[in-house]
């Protein structure tokens, strides 16, 4: 049914920078790509609460605890912005959650790594949120209106996440030798997973070409990764830590050359064999199931309210 004329008109709109809105005609593949990408993004925000929740009851000060709590609330909020935006594509909230539980929908692999020390809270905020910001700043210009608007809100809130993480790392780096070592180890743990967040190399990224043509994606995986590397290495050096890559080298053009990523590990974690894959999903299912009675009660109460009004 999708004749060439409609596709051409759609492409012309994209090329002219006109946002696509929920009720506008769009190719099935465009809708499917967004359903996949936006739900994956929403799930990532929500699953991302788990490695941080691990430290909530053991935060080293009341200040640190309040900050961590606020950050985790933000992640939940970002998940909700994204679910709402994704629902405008005609898929229900319930369906998205079901796909996550059935393993049909993915979330960012980075959250399948554990957070064994307090310094991981610093590294996650600084590096994982930092990498997410680079990606999300670019997505503020994505062609689907509701997605772009959700990204604008998220970007406004993310910079606190990154700064609080970097503050934790900077404090530990100038602390006792043990604290500094702990910071360095957390950096070593999160460095490569953060670089992997940008996805495979452009030439191996199967969906990239069409996504860029449709303005869903604005910059390539490798370009975004390089932006992150170039911003982050000077931050590592500033606080006296070491980049866990012996080959990292500043080039004359101001950009850093780094070793290649261990792609076997990348694909292995994506396939579900990361350190925490089953734990993360199991916990999400349990929280969802444990809350079922609350939703049932709220629904019954809501219906009763409506009847009283009528």
């Amino acid at each position: 049914m999708e004749n060439q004329k409609r596709l051409d008109e759609f492409q012309a709109k994209i090329d002219a920078g006109i946002k696509i809105e929920p009720k506008d005609w769009m190719p099935d593949k465009y809708r499917q790509t967004l359903v996949r990408q936006m739900s994956q993004h929403a799930h990532s925000e929500v699953i991302g609460m788990q490695p941080e929740a691990n430290w909530l009851t053991r935060a080293p000060s009341l200040r640190a605890k309040k900050i961590l709590m606020a950050k985790i609330q933000d992640e939940g909020g970002h998940g909700l912005y994204l679910y709402c935006a994704a629902e405008t594509l005609g898929v229900s909230r319930d369906q998205y959650i079901q796909w996550l539980h059935e393993g049909k929908s993915k979330y960012a692999s980075v959250f399948n790594y554990p957070s064994p020390t307090w310094a991981d809270m610093g590294a996650i905020g600084w590096l994982v949120d930092g990498a997410a910001i680079v990606n999300q700043v670019s997505l503020q210009r994505t062609s689907y209106g509701p997605y772009a608007r959700a990204m604008v809100r998220i970007c406004k809130e993310e910079s606190f996440h990154q700064r609080q993480g970097y503050e934790i790392m900077a404090e530990m780096a100038k602390g006792t030798p043990e604290q500094k070592e702990m910071a360095q180890e957390a950096l070593n743990r999160w460095w490569w997973p953060s670089l992997m967040m940008f996805g495979p190399h452009d030439k191996e990224s199967s969906n990239s070409g069409q996504s860029m043509k449709w303005g869903i994606k604005l910059e390539s995986n490798d370009d975004l990764r390089q932006q992150f590397i170039d911003k982050t290495i000077p931050q590592v050096e500033l606080i006296g830590l070491e980049v866990p890559d012996k080959n990292a080298k500043l080039m004359p053009n101001g950009s850093y050359k780094t070793s290649d990523i261990d792609w076997d590990e990348f694909w292995n974690v994506i396939k579900g064999n990361g350190p925490c894959n089953s734990q993360r999903l199991k916990h999400h299912k349990k929280a969802h199931d444990d809350g079922a009675w609350v939703r049932a009660a709220a629904e019954a109460y809501g219906k009763k309210q409506m009847e009283l009004v009528d």
């Binding site: 709220a298 629904e299 109460y301 809501g302």
Partner: peptide, 20 residues
């Protein structure tokens, strides 16, 4: 317009919108 929330009644919708 800023977005949407899910809620079962008006009061809950208001609280969810405030929190989100």
């Amino acid at each position: 317009h800023v977005g949407a929330v899910h809620a079962y009644d008006k009061e809950m919708a208001m609280e969810n919108a405030r929190d989100l």
